[in-house]
Design a protein around this nucleic acid. Structure first.
Lengths: 215, 215
DNA sequence: AATAACTAACTATCTAGTCAGTTATTTATT
DNA sequence: AATAAATAACTGACTAGATAGTTAGTTATT
Protein backbone atom coordinates (compact mmCIF):
# COMPACT_ATOMS: atom_id res chain seq x y z
CA UNK A 1 0.00 0.00 0.00
CA UNK A 2 1.57 3.20 -1.19
CA UNK A 3 1.07 6.80 -0.26
CA UNK A 4 0.68 8.46 -3.56
CA UNK A 5 -1.09 11.58 -2.48
CA UNK A 6 1.14 14.48 -1.59
CA UNK A 7 1.59 15.30 2.05
CA UNK A 8 2.65 18.88 2.37
CA UNK A 9 3.25 19.64 5.99
CA UNK A 10 0.57 22.08 7.09
CA UNK A 11 0.70 23.71 10.45
CA UNK A 12 -0.81 21.50 13.09
CA UNK A 13 0.81 18.34 11.83
CA UNK A 14 2.97 16.55 14.35
CA UNK A 15 5.07 13.43 14.64
CA UNK A 16 5.37 10.81 17.33
CA UNK A 17 8.92 11.08 18.64
CA UNK A 18 8.93 9.34 21.98
CA UNK A 19 12.75 9.12 22.17
CA UNK A 20 13.58 12.70 21.32
CA UNK A 21 10.95 14.53 23.37
CA UNK A 22 12.47 14.37 26.87
CA UNK A 23 15.81 15.75 25.69
CA UNK A 24 14.16 18.52 23.72
CA UNK A 25 11.95 19.45 26.65
CA UNK A 26 14.97 19.52 28.99
CA UNK A 27 16.84 21.74 26.55
CA UNK A 28 13.92 24.13 26.38
CA UNK A 29 13.56 24.12 30.17
CA UNK A 30 17.27 24.84 30.68
CA UNK A 31 17.12 27.81 28.38
CA UNK A 32 13.96 29.27 29.88
CA UNK A 33 14.73 28.51 33.54
CA UNK A 34 18.10 30.23 33.14
CA UNK A 35 16.55 33.24 31.49
CA UNK A 36 13.37 33.66 33.52
CA UNK A 37 14.04 31.66 36.68
CA UNK A 38 12.04 28.66 37.79
CA UNK A 39 8.90 30.40 39.03
CA UNK A 40 9.01 32.88 36.14
CA UNK A 41 8.93 30.19 33.48
CA UNK A 42 5.56 28.93 32.22
CA UNK A 43 5.16 25.29 31.39
CA UNK A 44 3.27 26.40 28.28
CA UNK A 45 6.40 28.25 27.17
CA UNK A 46 8.65 25.28 27.85
CA UNK A 47 6.31 23.16 25.75
CA UNK A 48 6.17 25.63 22.87
CA UNK A 49 9.96 25.98 22.90
CA UNK A 50 10.24 22.22 22.66
CA UNK A 51 7.76 22.14 19.79
CA UNK A 52 5.00 20.36 21.71
CA UNK A 53 2.03 21.30 23.86
CA UNK A 54 1.87 21.35 27.62
CA UNK A 55 0.09 18.03 27.86
CA UNK A 56 3.07 16.34 26.24
CA UNK A 57 5.44 17.76 28.81
CA UNK A 58 3.34 16.19 31.56
CA UNK A 59 3.51 12.94 29.66
CA UNK A 60 7.25 12.76 30.25
CA UNK A 61 7.68 14.68 33.52
CA UNK A 62 5.45 14.32 36.54
CA UNK A 63 5.47 18.05 37.31
CA UNK A 64 7.48 21.24 37.01
CA UNK A 65 9.79 20.32 39.88
CA UNK A 66 10.54 16.88 38.42
CA UNK A 67 11.53 18.59 35.18
CA UNK A 68 13.89 20.84 37.12
CA UNK A 69 15.52 17.88 38.85
CA UNK A 70 15.81 15.92 35.62
CA UNK A 71 17.61 18.68 33.80
CA UNK A 72 20.18 19.16 36.56
CA UNK A 73 20.82 15.46 36.87
CA UNK A 74 21.00 14.84 33.14
CA UNK A 75 23.27 17.73 32.22
CA UNK A 76 25.81 17.87 35.01
CA UNK A 77 26.89 14.47 36.27
CA UNK A 78 28.61 13.28 33.06
CA UNK A 79 30.76 16.43 33.02
CA UNK A 80 32.08 15.87 36.52
CA UNK A 81 33.01 12.30 35.76
CA UNK A 82 34.80 13.31 32.58
CA UNK A 83 36.93 15.80 34.49
CA UNK A 84 37.78 13.31 37.23
CA UNK A 85 38.96 10.78 34.67
CA UNK A 86 41.08 13.44 33.00
CA UNK A 87 42.88 14.20 36.23
CA UNK A 88 43.39 10.56 37.21
CA UNK A 89 45.26 9.85 33.98
CA UNK A 90 47.36 12.99 33.87
CA UNK A 91 51.11 12.77 34.40
CA UNK A 92 52.47 16.27 33.64
CA UNK A 93 53.09 19.22 35.95
CA UNK A 94 50.47 20.56 38.34
CA UNK A 95 50.63 23.98 36.68
CA UNK A 96 49.90 22.61 33.24
CA UNK A 97 47.08 20.49 34.64
CA UNK A 98 45.45 23.57 36.13
CA UNK A 99 45.80 25.29 32.79
CA UNK A 100 44.10 22.36 31.07
CA UNK A 101 41.29 22.29 33.61
CA UNK A 102 40.62 25.98 33.08
CA UNK A 103 40.72 25.57 29.28
CA UNK A 104 38.28 22.66 29.47
CA UNK A 105 35.98 24.62 31.74
CA UNK A 106 36.00 27.32 29.09
CA UNK A 107 35.35 24.94 26.19
CA UNK A 108 32.88 22.53 27.75
CA UNK A 109 30.97 24.72 30.18
CA UNK A 110 31.34 28.44 29.48
CA UNK A 111 30.90 28.10 25.73
CA UNK A 112 27.93 25.75 26.04
CA UNK A 113 24.47 26.04 27.54
CA UNK A 114 25.76 24.13 30.57
CA UNK A 115 27.02 27.42 31.93
CA UNK A 116 23.40 28.24 32.72
CA UNK A 117 23.15 25.62 35.44
CA UNK A 118 25.24 27.26 38.17
CA UNK A 119 23.17 30.42 37.86
CA UNK A 120 19.99 28.38 37.96
CA UNK A 121 21.00 26.46 41.09
CA UNK A 122 22.13 29.60 42.85
CA UNK A 123 18.95 31.45 41.94
CA UNK A 124 16.68 28.65 43.14
CA UNK A 125 18.67 27.49 46.15
CA UNK A 126 16.15 29.10 48.48
CA UNK A 127 13.19 27.34 46.89
CA UNK A 128 14.90 23.98 46.27
CA UNK A 129 17.37 23.37 49.06
CA UNK A 130 17.48 19.61 48.50
CA UNK A 131 18.39 20.08 44.86
CA UNK A 132 21.00 22.65 45.79
CA UNK A 133 22.36 20.23 48.37
CA UNK A 134 22.58 17.51 45.74
CA UNK A 135 24.46 19.88 43.46
CA UNK A 136 26.87 20.92 46.20
CA UNK A 137 27.63 17.35 47.20
CA UNK A 138 27.95 15.92 43.70
CA UNK A 139 29.40 18.82 41.74
CA UNK A 140 30.85 21.60 43.86
CA UNK A 141 32.56 19.46 46.47
CA UNK A 142 33.91 17.05 43.90
CA UNK A 143 35.23 19.96 41.86
CA UNK A 144 36.80 21.44 44.96
CA UNK A 145 38.49 18.17 45.85
CA UNK A 146 39.78 17.79 42.29
CA UNK A 147 41.40 21.20 42.25
CA UNK A 148 42.73 20.81 45.80
CA UNK A 149 44.34 17.49 44.92
CA UNK A 150 46.11 19.04 41.95
CA UNK A 151 47.48 21.85 44.11
CA UNK A 152 48.51 19.42 46.82
CA UNK A 153 50.36 17.45 44.21
CA UNK A 154 52.08 20.65 43.07
CA UNK A 155 53.27 21.31 46.61
CA UNK A 156 54.50 17.74 47.08
CA UNK A 157 56.46 17.93 43.85
CA UNK A 158 58.18 21.12 45.04
CA UNK A 159 56.50 22.97 42.21
CA UNK A 160 54.36 25.28 44.37
CA UNK A 161 55.03 27.19 47.59
CA UNK A 162 53.50 25.93 50.84
CA UNK A 163 49.85 26.97 51.03
CA UNK A 164 46.43 25.64 52.04
CA UNK A 165 45.27 23.65 48.97
CA UNK A 166 41.65 23.83 50.07
CA UNK A 167 41.54 27.61 50.14
CA UNK A 168 43.63 28.10 47.02
CA UNK A 169 41.29 25.70 45.28
CA UNK A 170 38.32 27.79 46.37
CA UNK A 171 39.92 30.99 45.09
CA UNK A 172 40.61 29.53 41.66
CA UNK A 173 37.20 27.89 41.36
CA UNK A 174 35.31 30.95 42.54
CA UNK A 175 36.26 33.02 39.53
CA UNK A 176 35.72 30.06 37.20
CA UNK A 177 32.18 29.53 38.49
CA UNK A 178 31.53 33.25 38.64
CA UNK A 179 32.44 33.56 34.96
CA UNK A 180 29.75 31.01 34.11
CA UNK A 181 27.20 32.88 36.21
CA UNK A 182 28.25 36.20 34.73
CA UNK A 183 28.08 35.00 31.13
CA UNK A 184 24.56 33.73 31.70
CA UNK A 185 23.25 36.78 33.49
CA UNK A 186 24.79 40.23 33.21
CA UNK A 187 27.44 39.86 30.50
CA UNK A 188 25.07 40.52 27.60
CA UNK A 189 23.87 43.76 29.20
CA UNK A 190 27.35 45.13 29.90
CA UNK A 191 28.67 47.47 27.22
CA UNK A 192 32.21 47.08 28.59
CA UNK A 193 32.78 43.77 26.81
CA UNK A 194 35.69 41.49 27.53
CA UNK A 195 37.39 38.38 26.22
CA UNK A 196 36.68 35.37 28.44
CA UNK A 197 39.81 33.58 27.23
CA UNK A 198 42.01 36.55 28.12
CA UNK A 199 40.29 36.71 31.51
CA UNK A 200 41.23 33.11 32.22
CA UNK A 201 44.77 33.64 30.89
CA UNK A 202 45.20 36.62 33.20
CA UNK A 203 43.92 34.69 36.17
CA UNK A 204 46.11 31.70 35.39
CA UNK A 205 49.21 33.78 34.90
CA UNK A 206 48.93 35.83 38.10
CA UNK A 207 47.80 32.97 40.33
CA UNK A 208 50.46 30.60 39.07
CA UNK A 209 53.13 33.25 39.34
CA UNK A 210 52.06 33.68 42.97
CA UNK A 211 52.04 29.94 43.58
CA UNK A 212 55.26 28.88 41.88
CA UNK A 213 58.46 28.60 43.87
CA UNK A 214 60.73 30.15 41.23
CA UNK A 215 59.42 33.19 39.48
CA UNK B 1 -20.20 47.71 44.82
CA UNK B 2 -19.10 45.97 47.97
CA UNK B 3 -21.13 43.82 50.25
CA UNK B 4 -21.38 44.20 53.97
CA UNK B 5 -17.99 44.29 55.65
CA UNK B 6 -17.32 41.99 58.51
CA UNK B 7 -16.47 43.60 61.79
CA UNK B 8 -12.68 43.88 61.97
CA UNK B 9 -10.90 42.42 64.94
CA UNK B 10 -11.13 44.90 67.78
CA UNK B 11 -8.07 43.50 69.55
CA UNK B 12 -5.58 43.83 66.70
CA UNK B 13 -3.84 47.03 67.72
CA UNK B 14 -1.44 48.82 65.40
CA UNK B 15 0.45 52.10 65.24
CA UNK B 16 0.79 54.76 62.60
CA UNK B 17 4.47 54.87 61.67
CA UNK B 18 4.66 56.65 58.35
CA UNK B 19 8.42 57.24 58.52
CA UNK B 20 9.53 53.77 59.47
CA UNK B 21 7.31 51.71 57.16
CA UNK B 22 9.16 52.07 53.83
CA UNK B 23 12.47 51.03 55.34
CA UNK B 24 10.94 48.07 57.12
CA UNK B 25 9.15 46.96 53.97
CA UNK B 26 12.37 47.23 51.94
CA UNK B 27 14.23 45.19 54.56
CA UNK B 28 11.56 42.50 54.43
CA UNK B 29 11.58 42.52 50.63
CA UNK B 30 15.37 42.20 50.49
CA UNK B 31 15.31 39.20 52.76
CA UNK B 32 12.49 37.44 50.95
CA UNK B 33 13.52 38.32 47.40
CA UNK B 34 17.00 36.96 48.11
CA UNK B 35 15.63 33.79 49.60
CA UNK B 36 12.71 33.05 47.26
CA UNK B 37 13.46 35.14 44.20
CA UNK B 38 11.28 37.94 42.88
CA UNK B 39 8.48 35.90 41.35
CA UNK B 40 8.57 33.41 44.22
CA UNK B 41 7.96 36.05 46.86
CA UNK B 42 4.36 36.95 47.75
CA UNK B 43 3.50 40.53 48.57
CA UNK B 44 1.43 39.16 51.45
CA UNK B 45 4.60 37.64 52.89
CA UNK B 46 6.61 40.83 52.45
CA UNK B 47 3.86 42.68 54.29
CA UNK B 48 3.69 40.17 57.13
CA UNK B 49 7.48 40.21 57.49
CA UNK B 50 7.34 43.98 57.78
CA UNK B 51 4.57 43.76 60.36
CA UNK B 52 1.86 45.27 58.17
CA UNK B 53 -0.77 44.08 55.71
CA UNK B 54 -0.54 44.04 51.96
CA UNK B 55 -2.62 47.18 51.57
CA UNK B 56 0.00 49.15 53.48
CA UNK B 57 2.75 47.99 51.17
CA UNK B 58 0.80 49.38 48.23
CA UNK B 59 0.43 52.62 50.14
CA UNK B 60 4.19 53.17 49.94
CA UNK B 61 5.15 51.36 46.72
CA UNK B 62 3.20 51.51 43.49
CA UNK B 63 3.67 47.82 42.73
CA UNK B 64 5.95 44.85 43.22
CA UNK B 65 8.42 46.02 40.59
CA UNK B 66 8.67 49.50 42.13
CA UNK B 67 9.50 47.89 45.45
CA UNK B 68 12.26 45.90 43.75
CA UNK B 69 13.72 49.03 42.17
CA UNK B 70 13.48 50.98 45.41
CA UNK B 71 15.40 48.42 47.40
CA UNK B 72 18.25 48.23 44.91
CA UNK B 73 18.51 51.99 44.65
CA UNK B 74 18.27 52.59 48.37
CA UNK B 75 20.71 49.95 49.50
CA UNK B 76 23.50 50.11 46.94
CA UNK B 77 24.32 53.61 45.77
CA UNK B 78 25.59 54.96 49.14
CA UNK B 79 28.05 52.07 49.39
CA UNK B 80 29.61 52.79 46.01
CA UNK B 81 30.07 56.44 46.83
CA UNK B 82 31.67 55.62 50.17
CA UNK B 83 34.24 53.39 48.48
CA UNK B 84 35.04 55.98 45.80
CA UNK B 85 35.70 58.61 48.45
CA UNK B 86 37.93 56.20 50.33
CA UNK B 87 40.10 55.65 47.26
CA UNK B 88 40.29 59.31 46.32
CA UNK B 89 41.76 60.22 49.71
CA UNK B 90 44.19 57.32 50.02
CA UNK B 91 47.91 57.98 49.82
CA UNK B 92 49.58 54.65 50.75
CA UNK B 93 50.72 51.79 48.52
CA UNK B 94 48.49 50.17 45.91
CA UNK B 95 48.87 46.77 47.58
CA UNK B 96 47.67 48.03 50.96
CA UNK B 97 44.77 49.84 49.29
CA UNK B 98 43.65 46.61 47.66
CA UNK B 99 43.86 44.92 51.03
CA UNK B 100 41.71 47.63 52.59
CA UNK B 101 39.14 47.41 49.78
CA UNK B 102 38.84 43.67 50.28
CA UNK B 103 38.54 44.06 54.06
CA UNK B 104 35.83 46.68 53.62
CA UNK B 105 33.98 44.50 51.17
CA UNK B 106 34.04 41.81 53.83
CA UNK B 107 32.87 44.09 56.63
CA UNK B 108 30.31 46.23 54.82
CA UNK B 109 28.88 43.84 52.26
CA UNK B 110 29.59 40.18 53.00
CA UNK B 111 28.76 40.46 56.70
CA UNK B 112 25.58 42.46 56.09
CA UNK B 113 22.34 41.77 54.28
CA UNK B 114 23.68 43.85 51.38
CA UNK B 115 25.43 40.72 50.16
CA UNK B 116 22.02 39.52 49.02
CA UNK B 117 21.74 42.11 46.28
CA UNK B 118 24.25 40.72 43.76
CA UNK B 119 22.50 37.36 43.90
CA UNK B 120 19.15 39.04 43.49
CA UNK B 121 20.23 41.09 40.46
CA UNK B 122 21.86 38.08 38.83
CA UNK B 123 18.83 35.89 39.44
CA UNK B 124 16.39 38.43 38.03
CA UNK B 125 18.53 39.83 35.19
CA UNK B 126 16.41 37.96 32.64
CA UNK B 127 13.16 39.39 33.95
CA UNK B 128 14.42 42.92 34.71
CA UNK B 129 17.08 43.81 32.15
CA UNK B 130 16.70 47.56 32.73
CA UNK B 131 17.31 47.15 36.44
CA UNK B 132 20.27 44.88 35.77
CA UNK B 133 21.60 47.46 33.32
CA UNK B 134 21.25 50.18 35.94
CA UNK B 135 23.16 48.01 38.40
CA UNK B 136 25.92 47.26 35.90
CA UNK B 137 26.38 50.91 34.97
CA UNK B 138 26.20 52.33 38.48
CA UNK B 139 27.78 49.61 40.57
CA UNK B 140 29.71 47.00 38.61
CA UNK B 141 31.42 49.33 36.16
CA UNK B 142 32.25 51.87 38.84
CA UNK B 143 33.68 49.10 41.01
CA UNK B 144 35.69 47.82 38.08
CA UNK B 145 37.08 51.25 37.34
CA UNK B 146 37.98 51.77 40.99
CA UNK B 147 39.96 48.55 41.19
CA UNK B 148 41.56 49.10 37.77
CA UNK B 149 42.71 52.58 38.77
CA UNK B 150 44.35 51.20 41.90
CA UNK B 151 46.21 48.58 39.89
CA UNK B 152 47.21 51.12 37.27
CA UNK B 153 48.61 53.30 40.04
CA UNK B 154 50.53 50.30 41.35
CA UNK B 155 52.12 49.77 37.94
CA UNK B 156 52.99 53.45 37.55
CA UNK B 157 54.64 53.47 40.97
CA UNK B 158 56.80 50.52 39.94
CA UNK B 159 55.09 48.48 42.63
CA UNK B 160 53.43 45.95 40.28
CA UNK B 161 54.59 44.14 37.17
CA UNK B 162 53.26 45.24 33.77
CA UNK B 163 49.77 43.80 33.24
CA UNK B 164 46.34 44.74 31.93
CA UNK B 165 44.68 46.58 34.86
CA UNK B 166 41.20 46.01 33.42
CA UNK B 167 41.54 42.24 33.37
CA UNK B 168 43.37 41.97 36.68
CA UNK B 169 40.61 44.09 38.19
CA UNK B 170 38.01 41.67 36.82
CA UNK B 171 39.83 38.67 38.28
CA UNK B 172 40.03 40.18 41.75
CA UNK B 173 36.44 41.43 41.72
CA UNK B 174 35.03 38.19 40.38
CA UNK B 175 35.90 36.22 43.47
CA UNK B 176 34.82 39.08 45.72
CA UNK B 177 31.38 39.22 44.11
CA UNK B 178 31.16 35.46 43.93
CA UNK B 179 31.74 35.23 47.66
CA UNK B 180 28.73 37.48 48.25
CA UNK B 181 26.61 35.33 45.93
CA UNK B 182 27.87 32.14 47.52
CA UNK B 183 27.23 33.30 51.09
CA UNK B 184 23.66 34.19 50.17
CA UNK B 185 22.85 31.03 48.28
CA UNK B 186 24.72 27.76 48.73
CA UNK B 187 27.05 28.41 51.67
CA UNK B 188 24.51 27.48 54.34
CA UNK B 189 23.82 24.13 52.64
CA UNK B 190 27.48 23.17 52.29
CA UNK B 191 28.80 20.97 55.09
CA UNK B 192 32.38 21.76 54.06
CA UNK B 193 32.42 25.08 55.86
CA UNK B 194 35.13 27.68 55.41
CA UNK B 195 36.35 30.96 56.84
CA UNK B 196 35.54 33.89 54.56
CA UNK B 197 38.31 36.00 56.05
CA UNK B 198 40.90 33.29 55.37
CA UNK B 199 39.53 32.97 51.84
CA UNK B 200 40.14 36.66 51.20
CA UNK B 201 43.56 36.50 52.86
CA UNK B 202 44.54 33.59 50.62
CA UNK B 203 43.33 35.39 47.53
CA UNK B 204 45.10 38.61 48.50
CA UNK B 205 48.36 36.86 49.29
CA UNK B 206 48.61 34.82 46.10
CA UNK B 207 47.38 37.54 43.75
CA UNK B 208 49.63 40.20 45.24
CA UNK B 209 52.58 37.86 45.24
CA UNK B 210 51.93 37.34 41.52
CA UNK B 211 51.56 41.05 40.90
CA UNK B 212 54.48 42.44 42.88
CA UNK B 213 57.79 43.07 41.18
CA UNK B 214 59.95 41.80 44.03
CA UNK B 215 58.85 38.66 45.72
C1' DA C 1 -8.09 -1.99 13.84
C1' DA C 2 -5.39 -1.21 17.70
C1' DT C 3 -2.19 1.48 20.08
C1' DA C 4 -0.18 5.31 22.16
C1' DA C 5 1.81 9.92 21.25
C1' DC C 6 0.00 14.12 21.29
C1' DT C 7 -3.41 18.02 21.52
C1' DA C 8 -6.41 21.49 23.38
C1' DA C 9 -9.75 22.92 26.25
C1' DC C 10 -10.78 22.69 30.82
C1' DT C 11 -10.50 23.59 36.33
C1' DA C 12 -8.61 24.53 40.47
C1' DT C 13 -5.72 27.42 42.72
C1' DC C 14 -2.88 31.11 43.66
C1' DT C 15 -1.63 35.99 43.99
C1' DA C 16 -0.98 40.98 42.40
C1' DG C 17 -3.39 44.78 43.00
C1' DT C 18 -7.86 47.47 44.71
C1' DC C 19 -10.83 49.83 47.78
C1' DA C 20 -14.50 50.44 51.20
C1' DG C 21 -14.23 50.51 55.80
C1' DT C 22 -11.66 50.82 60.52
C1' DT C 23 -8.85 52.96 63.90
C1' DA C 24 -4.76 55.63 65.72
C1' DT C 25 -3.45 60.21 65.99
C1' DT C 26 -3.81 65.18 65.48
C1' DT C 27 -6.27 69.41 65.68
C1' DA C 28 -10.07 72.27 67.03
C1' DT C 29 -13.51 73.43 70.38
C1' DT C 30 -15.47 73.99 74.82
C1' DA D 1 -8.37 69.26 80.68
C1' DA D 2 -11.83 66.90 78.39
C1' DT D 3 -14.22 65.95 74.24
C1' DA D 4 -15.44 66.02 69.54
C1' DA D 5 -14.27 66.39 64.72
C1' DA D 6 -11.02 65.76 61.11
C1' DT D 7 -7.32 63.44 59.08
C1' DA D 8 -4.74 59.85 57.19
C1' DA D 9 -2.40 55.43 58.27
C1' DC D 10 -3.76 51.00 58.04
C1' DT D 11 -6.69 46.76 57.33
C1' DG D 12 -8.68 42.76 55.03
C1' DA D 13 -12.04 41.07 52.00
C1' DC D 14 -12.51 41.26 47.25
C1' DT D 15 -11.57 40.95 41.97
C1' DA D 16 -9.24 39.95 37.87
C1' DG D 17 -5.90 37.53 35.63
C1' DA D 18 -2.57 34.07 35.26
C1' DT D 19 -0.84 29.32 35.23
C1' DA D 20 0.09 24.42 37.08
C1' DG D 21 -1.87 20.37 36.31
C1' DT D 22 -5.88 17.22 34.16
C1' DT D 23 -8.25 14.67 30.77
C1' DA D 24 -11.31 13.63 26.98
C1' DG D 25 -10.61 13.50 22.45
C1' DT D 26 -7.61 13.51 18.00
C1' DT D 27 -4.23 11.72 14.98
C1' DA D 28 0.20 9.44 13.67
C1' DT D 29 1.96 4.98 13.44
C1' DT D 30 2.16 -0.11 13.60
Amino acid sequence: MSKNHKRSCPVGRWQRRKEARPGEIIDAALELFCEKGFAGTRMDDVARHAGVTKGTVYLYFENKEALFYALVNEMVVPQVERAENMIANYTGSAASLIEILIKQWHENIIKTKLSGIPKLIISESGNFPELAKFYIDNVIQRGRRMMARVIEKGIERGEFIKCDPDYVSRVILSSMVFTAVWERSLASLDDETYDVEKFFDTQFEIMLSGLKKTK
